[in-house]
Amino acid sequence: MSFTTSAAAIAAAKAEGRGALVGYLPVGYPSVPGSLAALRTLCGADGLTPGVDLVEIGLPYSDPVMDGPVIQRAGTRALERGVRTRDVFAAVETVRAAGRPAVVMTYWNLVERYGVEAFARDLANAGGSGLITPDLVPDEAGEWLTASDAYQLDRVFLVSPSSTDERIAMTAQAARGWLYATAVMGVTGTRVTSSDAAPKLVERIRALAPEILVGVGLGVSNGDQAAAVVKFADAVIVGSAFIKPLLAAEDAGDPADLTGLRTAVADLTAGVRR
C-alpha cells in the first residue's frame, strides 16, 4: 500500500524496527519567531538530537476543550501575543525546511472561519501533510473530506477507549494517513503512568482496521513511557512534555532558552529507539 507523507514517516520508522515519535508544539509560543526556533529544535535541526519523526503543529484556539493546563497555558499566551491562523503556514514551511513532515492540529472553528477549501489549499501549498481534528468527527466532516481529497491531505481523526467497534471501523474508513488513539480518557497532559486502556484500544483498532497505522497520544511524558507505547503502537504522540520546558524557560526569564526542550527531545527520541 502507498503511504501519504505523514504516514510514510511513521512507516519509515517502522522499517527501522522502531516506533515513530510525533512531537507537538503550538505556533506562536513563546512568540511566532520563538515557536519557529523551537520547532527546528524539535526536528533536530540543531544536529544535537535525531529529532522527532513527524511534527504536529498546534494552532491555538480560545476554547480548547481537549487541551490540559500545559497546552492551554502556552496557547493562551500565544493568543495574547497575537498569533494568527496564517502563522501556522509559516510554521509548516519551517518544519518542511528542517526535513520533517508536518501535520496541523486545531479546533474546527478556526478552519471553518478561514474557509475549509482555502485552509486545505494553503496548507498543501506550505507543504503540510494534513490535519488532526480533535473536535471534528467524520460524521460532521463532509466539507473537509472533499477538501482533503482535492488537496491529497491526511485527515487524522481521533478514536477513544469509549468508541464503539462500529465507530472505530467507520473512523478508520474515513481517515487518511493514520489514526490518533487517545490513550487515556481525558484531556492532554502528562501522566505519571499510562493506563492499560491504550494497548486494549490499539488491539481493537488492529482487529477492526488492520491496514491503518496508529499513533497513541495523551499521557506520555518521558522516554521510558514512549518506549513502552511503541511496543504496541506505530507511533507515540508527545506534546505537554515538550511545552513544559518552554514554559519553564520563560518563567526563568529566558524564553529563547531551548536547552530544556533539547533535553526532552533527546530523552524521547532515545525512548523510541530502545
Binding site: 468527527v137 460524521d139 460532521e140 477513544s160 477507549p161 469509549s162 468508541s163 464503539t164 465507530r167 487517545t182
Partner: peptide
C-alpha cells in the same frame, strides 16, 4: 437525527464524548 437544525447544531466534540 444527527441533531441539525438546518445548518445549525450538530456535534462538534471529541470522539471520546460521542458514546456518552
Amino acid at each position: 437525527s444527527a441533531g441539525h437544525f438546518d445548518i445549525f447544531g450538530g456535534r462538534y466534540v471529541p470522539e471520546a464524548l460521542i458514546a456518552a
